[in-house]
Nucleic acid binder design. Structure first.
Length: 429
DNA sequence: TCTGGGGTCCTAGGACCC
DNA sequence: TCTGGGGTCCTAGGACCC
């Protein structure tokens, strides 16, 4: 039996945990540059504010109803997520951290010790709330896809008290019939449109599909597995997370600039900063990358025809996690992409092709130099951990401007980093 | 004026190999 | 004119997720 624990309106809930005055009011959290809505309180949803909507389009609504719009505070959310996941890890033999606000638990064999699983789930739910002030819903079912579906039903139907267990054919069928097909995990916009045109409008209808239909219309083997999972046959295993942190297969750092940029030095500053950040994340999970991609984007909402993005990739001669090396190659790729006279709005650096033990290969080429580089990188990470991200940087990051980097955007509505920054600790009193 | 960021998996086609 | 079969690796692109 799988359990899916999902935090309700996670970013808004994190903000409320430290600012109880936000309780009961319409609140939204904004994306980078205060651009789009990425989390909404129930009250904000009730006002008809859609997920992903740009703030400027709903400005009248926000002002009319006094909606609190907050900049995103990822230091806070990451820390709160760690607390929730740490507790969940203690409540089940295996835990998969699926995203910042969701986790799958394996509850195999747990009923024997803890009695009915829905009762156990209610305990977990109230304890998460007591410890962190974060509300959750929990879906329990024999497959991951059904656990997601149970979770969604529990969210929509307050009479269920935040927990739904699908442990019989009758209950499963009951749940399948009340979920629209577009809300099934793995059915996005394209597939939903296709299914509706075929007359399939509910999860129950999808569960009745033949394997051939699923394969033909829903992306081959992916669709076949989806339908099997709805029928109650597990196709997806739990992928336990090592001490709550995920080892990624790719690492990206991408940003829309605070304003459009046309100077090479300005964009280089951004790309070098992104490469540095990506290298830090890479070292934190102990990987070395063999593939480096840089992309540059122009305004995709303008009149210019697509493509709005161009990218360039290089296979590194030696896998590495060395910031200086990665910045050097990123600069070369940027040079290949750069078109003078073009105005860019966004850039990104992506690291791929990981292998373990990259450091060994590095030292093969530079028997003592490799170790020296490793020590330097460790020191760099330690300093940045102590004094804050970006305290110590390679020169290219600084670009032509000694002051604020021109690619950095606005975060005018950010709340303090209550839990992670010495200067912004929560004040009691 | 203002439109996020970071991931996953799968498929198809070409190059290349024996 | 005839001119195999099977495998791997790489890349691009599509669809989905939170």
């Amino acid at each position: 039996m799988f359990a899916l624990v999902d935090c309700n309106n996670f970013y808004v809930s994190c903000e409320r945990a430290f600012q109880p005055s936000l309780e009961g009011k319409p609140v939204v959290v904004l994306s980078n540059n205060d651009g789009c809505i990425v989390s909404r309180s129930a009250e904000a949803k009730a006002l008809g504010i859609p997920m992903g909507e740009p703030l400027f389009k709903i400005r009248p609504l926000v002002e009319q109803h006094g909606v609190q719009a907050l900049s995103s505070n990822y230091a806070l959310y990451g820390d709160m997520s760690g607390r929730v996941m740490g507790y969940l890890a203690s409540m089940a033999p295996e835990l998969e951290v699926y995203s910042i606000d969701e986790a799958f638990l394996s509850l195999h064999g747990m009923a024997r010790w803890h009695g009915p699983l829905d009762t156990y789930a209610r305990q977990i739910r109230s304890e998460v709330r007591r410890r962190t002030h974060i509300p959750t819903c929990i879906g329990l079912a024999p497959t991951k896809t059904l656990a997601k579906l149970a979770n969604r039903v529990a969210k929509k139907d307050p009479s269920l008290g935040g927990v739904l267990l699908l442990d019989s054919n009758e209950r499963r069928q009951w749940a399948l019939e009340r979920v629209p097909v577009e809300d099934v995990w793995g059915i996005g916009r394209q597939y939903a449109t296709k299914l509706h045109s075929m007359g399939i409008t509910t999860a129950a209808g999808l569960a009745r599909c033949s394997e051939a239909i699923a394969r033909k219309h829903l992306g081959g083997v992916v669709g076949a597995r989806l339908v099997r999972e709805l029928q109650g046959y597990p196709c997806h295993q739990l992928n336990p997370s090592e001490d709550g942190s995920l080892a990624r297969q790719s690492i990206a750092c991408t940003r829309t600039f605070g304003r459009p940029l046309a100077q090479f030095e300005d964009v280089l500053g951004a790309v070098a900063a992104f490469a540095s950040r990506a290298a830090e994340k890479l070292r934190r999970q102990g990987s070395a990358a063999s593939l480096l991609t840089v992309f540059l984007s122009q305004n995709r909402f303008g009149n210019a025809p697509p493509p709005h993005t161009r990218s360039a990739q290089v296979t590194l001669p030696v896998s590495t996690s060395n910031t200086t090396e990665l910045v050097r190659f990123a600069r070369a790729l940027l040079g290949r992409l750069w078109q003078p006279g073009t105005v860019y709005t966004k850039a990104g650096v992506i690291l791929d092709g990981f292998e373990q033990g990259g450091q060994e290969q590095l030292s093969l080429f530079a028997p003592d130099g490799g170790e020296r580089v490793e020590r330097l990188m460790r020191k760099l990470d330690a300093l940045n951990a102590r004094y804050g991200i970006g305290s110590v940087q390679v020169a290219a990051v600084l670009g032509a401007h000694p002051g604020k980097a021109p690619w950095k955007g606005q975060q005018q509505r950010r709340t303090p980093a209550y839990t992670t920054c010495w200067d912004e600790l929560w004040q009691v009193g």
